[in-house]
């Protein structure tokens, strides 16, 4: 089954096979950074790809965020987009889970798609959660942050409004947990689908291309929903 397995332990810290894949992903990003250390006027292919991604995310966030926030958030969001995209495609690379070690009669793959690990995707959701709320408190103040959850308008409904506000406050983290779970669920379901269909020759091929599409789509969905959450919290009109 496609479960996260521990390869070795380092001082009691388990090194899982998704962690090794994340290390490879980091190496890829370091390579890209060294390649783009000095941007040229006439861009190379790698630089052109990076610029295209950045412009795409910038256009996406310009539709709902103001220019100051776009300047602040577009680099982070395009990095997240590229990270998820490359992570998804790294997991889909043919032969990815065939390299491994045999430990006590059991085969353990060394590499596995990093986004099919719930820990990674939940951590990415947590980053968005803290970024949204810290930026909201910074731009609106603590009072404005509280006012986002508790409305004050019809005074005679104060009890109901407080109850609704408490519910909203309680449900706020759920949105970001689901943001992580959505990515994990889609990618690990795709892995299971490919594994189940690859028992019969050639049946897995159309599903493989479907997963290529889903991988790009999930990267877009994660960044798009992050932009939407930033927009709804920080830029809400005062009522």
């Amino acid at each position: 089954m496609s479960e996260v397995q521990t390869v070795t332990t380092l001082h009691g810290i388990p090194i899982t096979n998704t962690l090794t894949s994340v290390a490879i992903l980091d190496l890829i990003f370091l390579a890209i950074l060294t390649l783009l250390h000095k941007p040229k006027f006439i861009p190379s292919s790698v630089q052109a790809a990076g610029e295209l991604t950045y412009e795409f995310i910038e256009d996406l966030s310009k539709q709902v965020l103001n220019t100051q926030l776009v300047k602040l958030l577009a680099p982070y969001l395009s990095f997240v987009f590229l990270f998820i995209l490359l992570g998804n495609y790294l997991g889909l690379l043919p032969g990815m889970e065939t390299i491994g070690v045999v430990k006590s009669g059991e085969f353990i793959p060394l590499f596995k798609g990093p986004t099919s690990d719930l820990n990674l995707t939940l951590a990415m959701g947590a980053v968005v959660f803290f970024a949204v709320h810290i930026l909201t408190i910074k731009s609106k103040g603590f009072k404005g942050w509280i006012r986002h959850f508790f409305m004050t308008k019809p005074v005679y409904l104060a009890g109901v409004l407080i109850a609704v506000g408490l519910l909203e406050l309680f449900l706020e983290p759920i949105k970001y947990i689901i943001l992580g779970i959505r990515l994990f669920g889609n990618i690990s379901a795709g892995e299971m689908l490919i594994k189940a269909t690859s028992q019969i020759p050639f049946v897995a091929l159309p599903f493989y291309f479907l997963e290529l599409l889903v991988g790009a789509l999930q990267a877009l969905i994660f960044t798009g929903l992050s932009v939407a959450y930033f927009a709804t919290m920080i830029q809400e009109q005062e009522t």
Binding site: I178, I181, R182, G185, N186, A189, L217, L220, I221, G224, L225, A228
Partner: peptide
């Protein structure tokens, strides 16, 4: 696509 993702997340809860 975003609306589809939000609708799809209900199936993800079940999964």
């Amino acid at each position: 696509i975003l609306g589809m993702a939000l609708a799809e997340s209900i199936a993800i809860y079940v999964m």
